[in-house]
């Protein structure tokens, strides 16, 4: 187990370097990094050259990358477009997005798994068909359409929720955005759970559980669901990273000042440091989430042993 963990952590290094290098190169190709520093006008060439020298942008790209990474590991993510350290931006943006992601994950787990179990046990019945159709609709309609539509209906027309989230983004205001963010994954979780339940419900060990005289609820939850959740947990785990990065659209719609919003601003203003910094952290989140899922996998299925 310890050896496995060490090996996995070592494997994360090349992935981390590769991903960050790629994003570093892409952002550099994107445009002139100093262009955004002079406000709306273009910088005059003398100032631009001076700024470039100041930021070390006249050095070769690999050297820039090495310097940047060196700084990152001392906790210096550089300066954002508003002249403040990127870390300061992160400190305000990440808690908001983490809260939003948590709301979304809770929706995925509670609604997705419940619907999956209900439909999996009643395959081919009207409930199953209805839910299946609904998931198909959710999967095929892009998030910005569902998001804007719900915002218009619930927020503007009926006034049930605030159409845009206040800067502090309290939990209750994140319910609708969380649902929108979760929607597509929720549909996948439903389908995945449904298939898994339907597949396992005729399993021999389920028959044994019934023959033991266990109440139906216990048979379903302890025996059937426990086995059927293994692939679902894997999906939800890897989805954490995807949700945090994918929150860009949802955060734009509901005006949430989270990671997605800051990334968007960073790209708009061509602020290399912000973009690379945020993406670097997201890559880390993704890698750690994946590692945790793999470890959880062994807990859920004792037949899997890591050596």
């Amino acid at each position: 187990m310890a050896r496995y963990l060490v090996r996995r952590l070592l494997q994360m290094i090349p992935v981390f370097v590769g991903a960050t290098l790629l994003i570093f190169l892409m952002v550099n190709v994107m445009g002139d990094p100093v262009a955004g520093l002079c406000g709306e006008r273009a910088c005059d060439s003398a100032t631009a050259a001076q700024l470039k020298r100041e930021f070390g942008l006249d050095k070769p790209v690999w050297q820039q990358y090495a310097t940047y990474m060196g700084n990152v590991f001392t906790g210096d993510f550089g300066t954002a477009f508003n002249g403040r350290p990127v870390t300061e931006l992160m400190a305000t943006a990440f808690p908001v997005t983490i809260r939003l992601t948590l709301v979304a994950i809770v929706f995925e787990i509670v609604i997705g798994i419940t619907l999956g179990v209900v439909t999996g046990l009643r395959r081919g019945r009207p409930v199953d068909t209805a839910v299946l159709l609904a998931t198909l609709v959710v999967i095929s309609v892009p998030t910005f359409v569902t998001g804007l539509l719900l915002q218009l209906l619930l927020g503007v027309k009926w006034g049930w929720v605030r159409p845009s989230v206040s800067p502090l983004a309290p939990l209750d205001e994140l319910i609708l955005p969380g649902l929108v963010l979760a929607s597509v994954s929720l549909a996948y979780v439903t389908r995945l759970t449904r298939t898994s339940i339907a597949e396992n419900r005729r399993a021999d060990y389920v028959r044994t559980a019934v023959a033991k005289g266990l109440p139906r609820r216990r048979v379903v939850v302890r025996h059937l669901l426990r086995n059927s959740l293994i692939p679902v947990v894997t999906f939800i785990g890897t989805d954490i990273g995807a949700l945090m990065g994918g929150a860009i659209v949802t955060e734009r719609i509901f005006n949430i000042h989270g990671v997605g919003y800051q990334l968007y601003q960073g790209i708009l203003r061509q602020n290399t440091q912000t973009v690379v910094g945020f993406v670097t952290v997201l890559v880390l989140v993704f890698l750690v989430a994946n590692l945790l899922v793999d470890l959880l996998y062994a807990v859920l299925d004792p037949r899997i042993r890591y050596a």
Binding site: D204, Y205, R207, A209, D301
Partner: peptide
């Protein structure tokens, strides 16, 4: 049951 491997719950 016949096949104890599949008749016992693998994860418990």
């Amino acid at each position: 049951f016949q096949d104890a491997l599949s008749s016992l719950n693998p994860v418990l």
